[in-house]
Simulated scan of single mutants.
Amino acid sequence: MKTKTLITALGLFVAALAPAAMAENGVTATEIKIGMANALTGPTSGLGLGVKSGSEAYFKKVNAAGGVNGRKITLVSEDDGYDPPRTAAATEKLIKKDNVFALFGYVGTPTSKAALSMAVDNNVPFFAPFTGAEFLRAPVNKQIFNIRSSYFNEIEMQVERLVSDAGVTKFGLFYQEDTYGKVGKEGLQLALQKRKTSIAAEGHYMRNTEDVDAGLAALLAVKPEAVLMVGTYKACAALVQKAHAAGYKPKFFNLSFVGTANFIKAAGEAAEGVYITQVVPSPFDDSIPIVKQYQADMKAAGVHEFDYTSFEGYIDAAALVEGLKKAGPELTRAGFLAALEKMNVNLGGLDIAFGPQDHQGLNKVYLTKVHKGKPVSVSKL
């Protein structure tokens, strides 16, 4: 009799444990844990803080309305200082200690690369990194989903406008000496090869520094008509300021990753006339429904300054939530990834779609020019 009672009790104990054992990492009946590692301190902190503030504003609204299928989103954030070894350590913590459901909102190419193998090896979704690097797009990886357009797309537009609108034939490149800079250099080489030309001069600098003197000297030796910059806001601002001081004023172009508001603030008057390609619509154009929503939700979160970086974080969060909704109440990583591959949604006037062979949600590139201290949309140079 005692044996039978013991077996029954043991069976009930195992049954009670079964739901917990079968539960997906980072998911409970009331919570979904999302992990984020990016630069919250250091010379690139404006980007990490921007992405975080925009995404938090959206998550706050979703949670206030009851969450996703009854589960509220908890964002577990780590500071990596835009330093790949710190990114790797933070990612390991997020996956193995914090047990997050997915990784989200990483900022940077070298930092994303440092996190990627851990995400893939542990079957953790890697969603909406703030980088246009090609290795996150081709070949398609089942774990990786990008929202923003690629750097290759941005650079192709820059070169097309410079050639078609301004007749530029001599192109210069200023880049960060790491994976990010090399991806940008490859994109420029491809765009110029299509037009049977090549880079006329190039200079570089080291990540997390503003030591641009050697890079500027290399450009001044040739003085190309246009300089494409593949760097972060402080270094690019320093280059433009020092170039102007030396009497060199080519057509300067920045990629979206520079962080438009941060660049304009850092460069001051030297920012005037600099072109920046963007991968999301203007955060100031409230005729677009999602922009109006973004502005209202940022204000509700206590943020009254709008910029491209926080707006991109907001869009990324909105897309993530749509994917979670479509995965259904029985949330698993496999179900989430499968739902994303079928996702085609309109987020307040912005169409985001994925497919089995296309894990990039947006493809459009927008051109802006700094005018009177603000980024203004332009169609031609």
Rank of each mutant, 00 (worst) to 15 (best):
K234C: 08
K374D: 09
V183H: 06
T5H: 09
F354P: 01
Q278D: 07
A138Q: 09
Y294S: 04
I199W: 00
L75S: 10
F171P: 00
A327I: 01
V68A: 03
V100W: 03
A37K: 07
S150F: 00
V100T: 11
S117T: 14
P283S: 12
S164I: 10
K380E: 08
A243N: 13
E225L: 01
N63S: 11
V303L: 13
Y275D: 08
I352Y: 11
T3D: 15
A246C: 14
E134M: 08
N153Q: 13
G181I: 02
G184V: 01
T131C: 05
E312S: 14
A327H: 04
N208M: 12
I199E: 01
D307F: 04
A238T: 13
A246L: 14
M1N: 10
G66L: 06
D178S: 04
T260Y: 01
A267N: 02
G132M: 08
K113F: 01
G355C: 09
R207G: 03
G328F: 10
L347F: 13
E78R: 12
D358Q: 14
A237Q: 10
G184N: 10
A334R: 10
V378I: 04
N344D: 12
G67V: 04
G181N: 09
V291H: 03
G203D: 02
P356K: 09
L40I: 15
L216V: 05
I95C: 02
Q293P: 03
E156V: 01
T309F: 01
I34F: 06
P356D: 13
Y175F: 05
L219R: 02
A90Q: 09
L116P: 05
E312A: 15
D98V: 05
G167P: 14
V345Q: 15
M118W: 12
L173K: 00
E322G: 07
D165I: 10
G215T: 13
P281N: 06
T91L: 15
N123K: 12
A166E: 15
D80S: 15
P125C: 03
Y366Q: 12
V280A: 15
G67F: 03
T3L: 12
L362I: 12
D307M: 05
A39E: 14
K251V: 10
G108C: 11
A267S: 06
V291G: 06
Q189H: 06
Y294W: 05
K194W: 06
K265F: 10
A214G: 05
R161C: 07
V240W: 00
F174D: 00
G35M: 14
T131E: 02
